[in-house]
């Protein structure tokens, strides 16, 4: 009853403003999707199971225990390489640095996949308040 009266008391400008703001915000979602914080990290799988997630913005050297032994993975300036791995041909080491795609040391069961966008594109890491 009371609520009904309040609804009636809203002016045309009120409703127009409300709809405009909602439309503005909703259309903003499409732009926001473009700016969306893509996960920009290297995922390390061992034997098919995720073992680590390394943020690419942070330089690190990680030793991963695989099937045959320890694979050493290095993250530096948004690129990833396998430094050393206990495999016979060292194909994974020879691939060198990558900034997108996948590195794999099949004998050791270690797979490094980069998630996110191409390098050079800015991305969000956090929104704090």
């Amino acid at each position: 009853m009371k609520l009904r009266q309040v609804l009636d008391a809203t002016t045309r400008a009120d409703r127009l403003l409300f709809l405009t703001l909602v439309a503005l915000a909703v259309s903003g979602f499409f732009f926001a999707a473009e700016l969306s914080p893509a996960p920009y990290s290297a995922q390390v799988d061992v034997d098919g199971k995720p073992a680590y997630r390394l943020p690419l913005g942070q330089n690190a050297i990680v030793a991963v225990n695989g099937k045959e032994g320890i694979t050493t993975i290095e993250v530096k300036v948004r690129r990833v390489r396998i430094v050393d791995s206990p495999c016979p041909h060292k194909l994974c080491v020879k691939r060198g640095w990558i900034s997108s795609g996948t590195l794999a040391c099949v004998p050791n069961g270690v797979v490094v996949t980069i998630h996110g966008r191409a390098p050079g594109e800015e991305e969000l890491d956090a929104i704090s308040r």
């Binding site: 309040v6 703001l21 915000a25 903003g28 926001a32 700016l35 969000l124």
Partner: peptide, 29 residues
């Protein structure tokens, strides 16, 4: 970081509009 602010702006504005309408009704009453 302007990108971060632009990213969150639509969510903030939508939430603010809904909350603002609610507060407006209460104020009117």
């Amino acid at each position: 970081n302007v990108d971060a602010v632009l990213f969150i702006a639509p969510f903030v504005i939508l939430a603010g509009t809904l909350a603002g309408a609610l507060n407006g009704f209460v104020s009117e009453l």
